[in-house]
Write a protein that binds this DNA or RNA. Sequence first.
DNA 1: CAAGTAACCAACCGGTTGGTTGACGATGCG
DNA 2: CGCATCGTCAACCAACCGGTTGGTTACTTG
Lengths: 185, 185
Amino acid sequence: MRRDATATRQRILEEATAEFARYGIAGARVDRIARMAGCNKAMIYAYFLSKDQLFDAVFDAVVVRNVTDVPIDAADLPGYAARLSDQYRTYPEVGRLATWDRLERDGVGVRTATIVEANGHKVEAVAEAQRAGLVGDHLPPEMLLELLFAVAATGFDSVVPGQEPPSPEARRQMVRDAVFRLIRP
Amino acid sequence: MRRDATATRQRILEEATAEFARYGIAGARVDRIARMAGCNKAMIYAYFLSKDQLFDAVFDAVVVRNVTDVPIDAADLPGYAARLSDQYRTYPEVGRLATWDRLERDGVGVRTATIVEANGHKVEAVAEAQRAGLVGDHLPPEMLLELLFAVAATGFDSVVPGQEPPSPEARRQMVRDAVFRLIRP
DNA sequence: CAAGTAACCAACCGGTTGGTTGACGATGCG
DNA sequence: CGCATCGTCAACCAACCGGTTGGTTACTTG
């Protein structure tokens, strides 16, 4: 097989994404990632230096993709939340990786410059919409945003066992309605 | 020191709760739990058979306490959510353990008979309140409940880094208001 | 083609982890 | 007191895991 450093790096990143999303940082196995990526463990350490830094690279890439794919639209927060919810369904790794990060690093959530910047921008957008009267000001923009994120991540596993999780349309509609209610002035 | 089997068992359970809440199932160290509980590792296996069954015992105990301490009041869901939120603040292990369970067992959330029963009862209570007209029927009771849980778990870490997390009163008020908006007919 | 370099790997290493075992000492009962 | 039972533990083990090393293979350059 032809040698290609960037392709190998990319394969490692993809398989690491799946592995970390599934097992978390402590549970992920570097050997397994190497095997899945069809390369040697040493390559992983050549490219990413450590397991933790590999996770950072994975998480950052996922966040960047998410922010790029689903830009905030403060004039239509219900629509934004619905798109975010769809994104979570399309890429289930996103939510899981974010949760692993929150739990396993006792970092209070945000660490990477990428995320800090993205969140700051979003808070500002919501504040702007509040000043314009499009969004109620009964809550500070950060809390509104946190509620929105929480709602967008909802509806994937049912509370009661037997029951089917809601269809994509139903979930999208639920998220849209919930956010509409939450931000109404 | 006087020997006391049930006391030892109880100490193991308590320390295991802290350990699992902090490090998760894969990250928890049985040696550390034994050392913290002031007993030998063998005791843990004598009482709980395996690391996984120890986690089950821990999780079940925590859930039981949570359900007992904060019974649902379908006639006042905002108040219930606020009390739940307070409980999450008083016992941060609860939320973390539940999250670890959701992530590390790929079980879709509910597994233990205790939880299934508790959740079923709650869904029924909400449905009852809907029939009585106290709660809007724009959403099925399970979804309403899932949204309520999501909101009650909100407001502990801030979205932007520098900022302080909201005060207990502010959080309680936010949760109450959010749930009020979500269930309004 | 020869030399140099970048990509790659099998094998290994030190330390750790869940789990086990065999013995020891305290306790309580007949 | 004799003795069985139960709680306790130090020591141990096989498997595993993150990380490293020394060397090999493919590709490029002159």
